[in-house]
């Protein structure tokens, strides 16, 4: 009943261990109400564990946690009433049609109008009359999205929401996320690749080895993101000129092909390249590991291996 609780999620020092394996070693998060919050980290970093702690599927060993004004340990049912959750995988193998599962899950929440389910299914072009067992990964993901969005929850917790969706549906999904934000509701979405959240998130936290290593505005993060660019020219080019360009490093020229890393804006590189005839340009996704390596952890990033299992 506290009118001035603008935070959807507040976590301080969350810890969780399985035997000697520390899945979470002090996670701090502040997610404001009405924002889209990206939760980034490599596989096995603790994203899914954190999400499961938020939902009270996993009990934290220590730390403070508040979700929508309550502690999941004591008020789990109450919190989950206002939360829509998309699991990292929806491996339901029922022979029953998707509609039955959606109706059932809606009933667990006291009922969701059929029209609402139909509307979402149509937007995602999902045929709800088909048995879940036969659905492709992408279609299962759509079922998961429909059940997460259908009751218009105050907080959406989405674990790797766009995996398996084709680009067109990813756009539709992002539109749905923006609508939720426009409604003043909150979205907390995890991903192991920056590009999945960079178009829609306001802020993002980066988790690594069970610890939050950075929480930043998306713009700042984008600014720092490094991507690997490959250019192929009609004629051989000089390495030196490109190596001298702003924000460009690790330049390798192999005849008419140039490989390099670009930190942040590729403006200087593009302008330089425009002096030549460009036959092809590829730009790889910014790599999160790369992001740590260059900006956060200095030397040790990537050396101690991704200990532990893939928790996503």
């Amino acid at each position: 009943m506290n009118a001035e609780t603008p935070r959807a999620i507040t976590a301080a020092g969350l810890t969780k261990s399985y035997g000697r394996h520390h899945a979470l070693s002090g996670v701090d998060l502040q997610v404001q109400q009405g924002e889209v919050f990206g939760f980034l980290g490599p596989n096995g970093a603790g994203k899914t564990t954190t999400i499961r702690v938020l939902l009270d599927l996993i009990r934290r060993d220590g730390g403070e946690l508040n979700v929508l004004g309550h502690d999941p340990r004591t008020d789990g049912v109450r919190i989950r009433r206002d939360v829509g959750y998309l699991p990292g995988e929806l491996p339901i193998s029922s022979r029953r049609p998707a509609r039955e599962l959606l109706t059932y899950l809606g009933d667990l929440r006291g009922g969701v109008p059929r029209s609402r389910v139909d509307e979402l299914a149509e937007r995602l072009s999902l045929d709800v009359s088909r048995p879940i067992r036969g659905l492709s990964k992408g279609n299962k993901q759509k079922v998961g999205l429909v059940q997460a969005f259908m009751h218009q929850p105050r907080l959406l917790i989405l674990d790797e929401p766009t995996s398996g969706l084709d680009p067109l549906l990813q756009q539709e999904f992002l539109t749905m996320v923006r609508e939720v934000r426009a409604d003043g509701r909150t979205v907390f979405m995890s991903s192991h690749v920056l590009s999945e959240v960079q178009d829609v998130a306001d802020r993002a936290a980066i988790i690594r080895d069970g610890r939050i290593v950075a929480t930043e505005d998306m713009d700042a993060l984008r600014e720092r993101a490094s991507r690997r660019v490959t250019l192929r020219f009609a004629d051989p080019v000089s390495r030196e000129r490109f190596a001298a360009a702003e924000r460009v490093r690790d330049v390798v020229v192999d005849g008419d092909t140039l490989h390099c890393m670009v930190d942040g804006s590729p403006d200087a590189l593009v302008k330089l390249a425009a002096e030549h005839t460009v036959l092809a340009l590829t730009s790889e996704e910014p790599d999160l590991e790369e992001l740590f390596f260059t900006h956060y952890n200095g030397g040790d990033a990537g050396t101690d291996g991704k200990a532990g299992r893939d928790a996503s």
Binding site: V77, R80, P87, L90, I92, L105, L108, Q147
Partner: peptide
């Protein structure tokens, strides 16, 4: 996991 993420004890 999916069922327990719903408001059921």
């Amino acid at each position: 996991e999916l069922v327990l993420a719903h408001p059921v004890g």
